[in-house]
Design a protein around this nucleic acid. Structure first.
Length: 287
DNA sequence: AGTTCCCTGAGG
DNA sequence: CCTCAGGGAACT
């Protein structure tokens, strides 16, 4: 569930910890029981993601972390000429630890620092997460990033409208498609559609310019407010400092099936849309 | 464009 | 026990 606001919050908390630190040692414990074409370049992703351009994780030793960034839901540590990419998927998490402290059961990567004597652990209970090292040069064209759409907080209303018009399918599914916009997931798609008064099953291409504008603004508003709140901590999301987000308190439809719509008081409905649960108010959200 | 699968802990 | 959660790849 880490979506754009959660990954952004992780990036910010991580930045305060590791920016400028030199990686002394790298220890990888790739998840077992996976297709065992495991090289030391990372894991996760499709078959094409294991391309020749991947770099061994051990190459990170001795490098200094000079940027902590985000692209969509991907977290990117830039180290010298290398980029260490993470996708947290459902349960990826970072822990700031000390050498000698017992390592958690689901820790798959450890970056060890000497000054200060600390460790960054990446853990992932469900093993869906992705870790990969790439050359920094040409990073935007790497398999993990190249098909991502624009950042929702950067895209203009004009471009948003044009891209929406070019899509077939339901607006909810289009919002979830990372090649349309990078970083929107289930929670924020539902919240943005509610805020814009648009039914999740409305065909994307059918939206008028004014309604598309409202959706564009709602996506920006929901995402930026969620970032300010440190993300949504339903279940177990925490940032790299272990801090919880608070945006779950501002959810108006997500996870509120049967509760009264904050707008009209009618019950919030839940329906499976594109294999994911969608939450909406059938009265306030028009097709 | 919709469905299945991956994976595991939490909750019924 | 069983079911559910869900991002995204790989199916159909």
């Amino acid at each position: 569930m880490p979506e754009l606001p959660e990954v952004e919050s992780v990036a910010r908390s991580l930045r305060r910890r590791v920016l400028g630190l030199r990686i002394a040692e790298v220890e990888a414990f790739p998840p077992k029981g996976k297709p065992v074409r495991r090289r030391l370049t990372g894991w996760g992703g499709g078959r094409e993601a294991r391309s020749a351009a991947a770099v061994p994780l051990s190459a990170l030793a001795g490098k200094t972390i000079d940027k902590v960034g985000r692209r969509g839901k991907n977290l990117i540590l830039e180290c010298g000429g290398l980029a260490l990419l993470f996708h947290l998927k459902m349960t990826g998490r970072f822990l700031w630890s000390r050498p000698g402290e017992p390592r958690g059961r689901h820790v798959h990567l450890v970056l060890r620092f000497r000054n200060p004597e600390r460790e960054l652990h990446f853990e992932d209970v469900r093993k869906f997460g992705l870790v990969r090292c790439r050359p920094l040069d040409g990073l935007a064209a790497c398999p993990e990033l190249r098909s991502l759409g624009p950042e929702p907080l950067d895209v203009s209303a004009d471009v948003f409208f044009l891209r929406l018009k070019a899509r077939r399918g339901r607006v909810k599914s289009v919002l979830l498609d990372q090649s349309f916009l990078a970083g929107v997931g289930n929670i924020y798609a539902d919240e943005a559609l509610f805020a814009a008064g648009i039914h999740p099953l409305a065909p994307a291409a059918s939206l008028s310019r004014p309604r598309a504008d409202r959706l564009w603004a709602a996506v920006r508003d929901v995402l930026s407010r969620a970032i300010r709140a440190g993300g949504s901590s339903i279940r177990d999301y925490r940032d790299a400092d272990g801090e919880l987000g608070s945006f779950q308190d501002e959810h108006r439809v997500y996870g509120r099936e049967g509760e009264p719509c904050p707008n009209c008081g009618g019950p919030i409905r839940r329906a499976v849309i594109g294999g994911r649960s969608g939450h909406f108010c059938p009265r306030c959200q028009k097709r």
